[in-house]
């Protein structure tokens, strides 16, 4: 993939992630986000986080499936991952501002009493160190192996995010199902691809030998 193409694609990613936020802010200002704008913003930013996390998580398995043709995708993983964290921050801000009204007492009570809030905050706290250590300086400082191990936390964060979603909706609401299946599929894809590659490997060895 030539440099200019990467640059164009990166610009497209920035636009795709930032324009919806601009639309949201404008809609909030003009009060066109539906009867319950707080609810709209909550689900928009929450679902946005999970979708961007799903894309981030999908990059590695796709690369493994098509190492030659789609290897360049790795250059987008950090970008999309950071946008997932950005949406998670907006989601958290929605809670702190529009639900809790910056009332610390309210938030402390909520975090301890409501398990869906606890799960959501856990997911955000898990993403935080990943966002902080996302620069190449940190990779060099920590060493690839340790850095990789730390960033395995993204799987835990995604699962915590899904648990947060299911616990947050009323029983009988199936809205979280689609994103759960998508993220679940991506998580399952990794071991499946590993098994498939291992079965292929002896053939390669035979030809090579």
């Amino acid at each position: 993939m030539p440099k200019w193409a990467i640059a164009i694609l990166k610009t497209a990613v920035h636009l795709a992630c930032l324009l919806p936020v601009a639309w949201l802010v404008w809609g909030a200002y003009k009060n066109t986000l539906g009867p319950d704008p707080t609810h709209t913003v909550t689900f928009f930013t929450g679902r946005g986080t999970l979708r961007l996390l799903a894309i981030t998580l999908a990059i590695s398995p796709i690369r493994k499936l098509f190492p030659k043709r789609l290897g360049w995708l790795i250059r987008f993983r950090r970008l999309v991952g950071l946008y997932a964290f950005f949406y998670a921050c907006l989601h958290l801000l929605t809670y702190v501002w529009l639900y809790a009204g910056f009332n610390v007492q309210y938030m402390v009570a909520d975090i301890s009493k409501r398990k869906f809030i606890t799960a959501g905050l856990t997911a955000w706290l898990l993403l935080l160190p990943l966002a902080v250590t996302s620069t190449s300086w940190w990779i060099r400082k920590m060493g690839g192996k340790r850095w990789n191990r730390l960033h395995m936390l993204v799987y835990v964060a995604a699962i915590a995010g899904l648990v947060h979603y299911w616990w947050g909706v009323k029983p009988g609401v199936w809205r979280p199902l689609d994103i759960t299946l998508i993220i679940g599929g991506i998580l399952l894809a990794r071991p499946l691809i590993a098994v498939w590659k291992r079965r292929e490997a002896p053939v390669v060895v035979k030809i090579g030998g």
Partner: peptide, 22 residues
Amino acid sequence: VDRVQWSQKTQRVIGAPIWKQL
């Protein structure tokens, strides 16, 4: 009474601008 899934201390006014809902 905070037993339920969501806190009931506050409520959101439907139709109000987002910064005036709470």
